[in-house]
Amino acid sequence: MGAALIELSGIERVFQLGDSEVHALRRLDVSISAGEYVAVMGPSGSGKSTLLNLLGLLDRPNAGVYRLEGRDVTTLSAEEQARVRSERIGFVFQSFHLVPRLTAAENIALPMILAGIAPAQRSARVARALADYGLENRADHRPDQLSGGQRQRVAIARATIMQPALILADEPTGNLDRATGEEVMRLLEELNARGVTLIVVTHDGGLGARARRQLLMEDGALHHDHWRPADTTPDRCALPT
């Protein structure tokens, strides 16, 4: 199989809180291959979100090296990191984070607008995304006119509109009821089935168990790296430890 999509080695993240230091991540070594489906689990405050922010280049580690697609991205400038986020990474948040004054279609188009893609190409892609996520009739609705599930579908459409290699979802079902959450997970898993690497932070053991690989965090360290044996597992040989 190909080289690892994500390679973390010796990652440390320390927050300074007054005099005390909070070690949100300690000596983290993880490798994730392209196309994997990973659930990050662990108790509250164990560093799951911190890890996801680092993977999404929204945050920088205090020590260690993060390689994305073979490239050391920790040393990139802020502008270069923004470009990587724009082209390679899609985010899905617990609280959706839609821009309230923009319609569903405009929210979905936002990453393309920021990337400077031409309007004609944008509208074609937005139309396809709206159809893919069953939002055709909601294109002109603003977020406050949408249900939670619809909002998260808009968010997923937005996260995928730039066709990223990596989707990072921090508790994407945390604000949804069980049935809607199931549906959102199914959409994310479909993306993964089409080859997108999917990393989901979740508190829900049931949902986490659906991933082929579970990273169990505890107090900023990787406590357990569990592989669910399955015949469809793509790259067991790339096992990191």
Binding site: A78, L110, L114, R158
Partner: peptide, 16 residues
């Protein structure tokens, strides 16, 4: 503020 954070997550540079 939240919107600005979002725009950055979606790939907006500081200059944008």
């Amino acid at each position: 503020t939240a919107e600005i954070g979002l725009l950055k997550a979606l790939g907006a540079t500081g200059a944008t």
